[in-house]
Simulated assay, not measured.
Amino acid sequence: MPPPPIAPDGPGQVPYGYPGTTPAYGYPGPQAPYAPYPAGPGYAWPGGQAPPSNGMGTASLVLGIISAVGFVMWPIAFVLGVLALIFGGIGRGKAGRGEATNPGVALAGMICGAAGIVLVLGLVALVISVDG
């Protein structure tokens, strides 16, 4: 059987297992039972979207958890709780605009940050009431 004709753009990619060629990857030779996976879309194509920036939501969750767990270090926990609320708000805004894909993580960070602030305020109130 003769080979297929060459396209006007050039020969293109030789199909997997075509006689007289070696595959670029995988098992050598045409005895491999499966064709190679197709190449995925690249990030350099014009009009492509940028990858989501989920850093604010993730930072909010991390700071909120540290604030809620470490509330006995009340000055640090209070600042971290406030930062978790701020970063969570920014992360939720990014998710609303479609720039991020983790609105739930940002919301969880805001909740943990608020819980850390409430625990700090409760600890301070307890210390003041016992000390006074």
Rank of each mutant, 00 (worst) to 15 (best):
P4K: 10
V120G: 01
G122C: 06
A77Y: 01
G81T: 04
W74S: 14
G132E: 04
I90K: 06
S53V: 07
M56C: 06
Q31P: 02
G96F: 00
N54F: 06
S60K: 05
P28Y: 07
D131T: 12
G40V: 02
G122D: 06
T21R: 11
S60I: 04
T58L: 15
P5N: 11
G98A: 01
S60V: 02
F71G: 05
P11H: 09
G55R: 03
P28K: 09
D9T: 15
G10A: 06
P5V: 10
R92N: 11
A7E: 07
M56D: 14
A68W: 01
P2N: 07
G93F: 08
L85Q: 06
G29N: 11
T101V: 05
D131N: 13
G116A: 07
D9Y: 14
Y27K: 15
A68S: 15
A35H: 09
S60M: 03
P28G: 08
D131H: 11
I128G: 00
G40Y: 07
V120S: 07
G47V: 03
L63S: 13
V130M: 12
R92F: 05
G26L: 14
L126D: 13
G104I: 03
I111E: 07
I128K: 08
P103D: 05
G81M: 03
G81P: 07
G10N: 12
P8V: 07
M73H: 10
M73A: 15
A114E: 04
G113S: 06
P19D: 15
A68E: 02
V72T: 08
I65N: 08
M73Y: 11
P2T: 11
P33G: 03
I66F: 12
G42S: 12
D9K: 12
Y27S: 10
C112A: 15
Y43K: 04
D9A: 14
G96L: 00
P4R: 06
L123C: 05
A7P: 02
P103V: 02
N102I: 02
G81F: 04
V120W: 00
G17Y: 06
V69Q: 11
G48H: 05
L63H: 01
L80D: 13
P11R: 12
L80P: 06
A115I: 13
G70K: 09
G88N: 01
P41E: 13
P51L: 13
G91R: 11
A84H: 05
G122T: 03
S67K: 03
R97E: 03
V69Y: 12
G29R: 14
V105H: 01
M1G: 13
T22S: 10
A50Q: 09
P38Y: 00
P30E: 10
I111C: 06
G12R: 04
W45T: 14
G10M: 10
Y43S: 10
G55L: 11
P41S: 09
A7L: 10
G104D: 14
A100M: 05
